[in-house]
Computed example of a mutant assay.
Amino acid sequence: MNGFERRKEQKKRKILETALTLFMKYNIRKVSVSEIAKEAQVSQVTIYNYFENKDNLVHEVIIFYVDKIWGEYEQLFNSNIPFPTKVKKIIFDKSEVASHINEEFFEYFMKEYSGEDNYIDKLYMEKALPRFMKLFNEGKEQGFVDPSISNEAILLYIQMFKEFLQRGDVTKNILPITEDLTKLFFFGIAGKNEE
């Protein structure tokens, strides 16, 4: 990548980071392209050159956000910390994010997640699901997940959880109980809450 392409990518990343911050803090509809441009220290024309319109920008921000969160999870999954610590970190992180996210951004995110052939679903199937299964197998090996529970049953449980979260009629109810749902998800599988 030459210097021009590197600067272009850095500028695009700055726009995405700025838009994500503003969208998570405020209502997406209330954040204008001009506000994003001002905060990112670029022109509105630059934003339109990269993203064409605000809808495309919002879509790209969702992808950027998902990739960012997944990168953080991969680091956690690849660490040598014990299973219960990984689970607690996942629960804490989800709870922390949920407490700082604008409800409208979350609804838009869930709408994107519930659509057909979406980026989030693709990442889930190709990367997240296999990595979560590996995490549960680690939990079995370390004695924190009941080894008598088959991987097929765990997969079915994950699929039921995922399909429920993709229902449009539950979106408004999910954000306030993110921590509870995450605890239920993990400790329901483990059968106990190890301190």
Results as ranks from 00 to 15, higher is better:
Phe161Ile: 04
Ser95Met: 07
Gln41Phe: 09
Phe185Pro: 00
Glu60Leu: 10
Asn173Phe: 13
Phe136Gly: 01
Glu35Cys: 08
Thr171Lys: 11
Ile36Gly: 03
Asp117Ala: 11
Lys88Ala: 11
Lys68Pro: 08
Lys94Ala: 13
Asn80Gly: 11
Leu22Glu: 00
Asp93Phe: 15
Ser43Trp: 06
His100Cys: 12
Met110Arg: 08
Lys127Ala: 12
Met160Thr: 13
Glu5Gly: 06
Glu17Leu: 12
Asn53Tyr: 06
Gly3Thr: 08
Met125Asp: 12
Gln159His: 12
Leu76Ala: 03
Asp55Thr: 11
Leu57Tyr: 05
Asp180Trp: 09
Thr178Ser: 05
Asn137Lys: 15
Tyr65Ala: 07
Val42Cys: 00
Phe136Ile: 06
Thr46Tyr: 04
Tyr73Thr: 11
Gly139Phe: 01
Arg7Gln: 06
Ile28Leu: 10
Asp180Phe: 13
Arg131Gly: 08
Glu126Tyr: 14
Tyr108Cys: 08
Tyr73Gly: 00
Leu184Gly: 15
Ile158Trp: 12
Lys111Phe: 11
Asn56Glu: 07
Glu35Met: 12
Gly191Arg: 08
Asn118Glu: 02
Tyr124Trp: 13
Leu155Met: 14
Ser79Met: 07
Glu52Leu: 12
Ala153Phe: 13
Lys89Ala: 10
Val87Gln: 01
Ala37Arg: 01
Leu76Gly: 04
Leu123Trp: 02
Met1Gly: 13
Asn137Ala: 14
Leu135His: 02
Ile47Tyr: 03
Asn102Gln: 11
Arg29Lys: 15
Tyr73Glu: 06
Ile69Gly: 06
Tyr50His: 10
Ile154His: 00
Glu72Gly: 14
Tyr113Ala: 12
Asp93Val: 13
Lys89Asp: 02
Phe185Asn: 02
Glu141Arg: 14
Ile69Ser: 07
